[in-house]
Design a protein around this nucleic acid. Structure first.
Lengths: 129, 129
DNA sequence: CCCGTATATCGACGACCGTCAAGATAGACA
DNA sequence: TGTCTATCTTGACGGTCGTCGATATACGGG
């Protein structure tokens, strides 16, 4: 298989195009570090897949054999990494996923293997005719 | 290899569709943990962007202010997580990125934010009143 | 205003991680 | 065989991370 060299834009935000400066790597590593824990991954998926696109903390704690403070800690890591946002409504705090941040991370990983040679675009830039 | 691009199934391998079992989360966390370090991210990007799709260790060590053993350690983490493969040719060892693994991780993150609304899948950017 | 529930912070402890120096292994070549 | 270079392994040290119990803050309801 020959290597597919897509238009310059497709590689701009990915691993295949730029040797990734130290600052970029530092920033990306912070985000991936937030994803590098099974509990946080499950929290994120619970939030992202929850009806209405948001989930209250009380919806999340029951899923794990972990104490409240631990869940709160993981949510804080997700929040500070920008992967989720939180909003307090009355007694409860609701979390929702941050689509742009997730899309950015996805774009970094994608073109290294799955650039479509035909369009040269990634999925999120694909425009239906 | 089949493409999982069917509109209705776009959530099957992503955060938006499945609450992500503990086993899935454990496995994904291992991969993201391998990405959760600036040095490894830069190593991966150097490998992925290198001419011919592969890079020898001697091409990589010069980029960092780190000792040989440390680079070797990071390459081992990348190797054991499946993100890269290695092959010895004569005195040198060549590394290349593993496209399928990267694509899988990319797919996990993507649909949470960037599914086309026409496909009818959940979309967090679209917030109904 | 006080009480109960929901969520977050603090402080501590054990486990894991990144880094290094020293030594080991693999291959090329004489 | 012996030596040189390239790469990996080992063992150790300091720092960071996940988890907990105790405590604090926020809010609604009596």
């Amino acid at each position: 298989m020959s290597k597919q060299q897509a238009p310059a834009e497709a590689c701009d935000t990915s691993l295949c195009g730029d040797p990734l400066s130290q600052e970029q790597a530092d920033e990306l590593a912070l985000a991936f570090k937030a994803l590098a824990d099974p509990v946080r991954l499950r929290l994120l998926s619970l939030i992202a897949s929850h009806a209405g696109g948001e989930a209250c903390v009380c919806d999340l704690t029951g899923t794990f054999d972990l104490t409240g403070p631990t869940i709160s800690h993981h949510l804080k890591v997700l929040r500070e990494s920008g992967l989720v946002t939180s909003e307090r409504r009355a007694t409860w705090v609701y979390y929702r996923a941050a689509p742009e941040v997730l899309a950015r991370l996805s774009a970094v990983l994608q073109p290294a293997g799955t650039i479509d040679p035909a369009t040269g675009t990634t999925l999120e830039t694909e425009i239906p005719a």
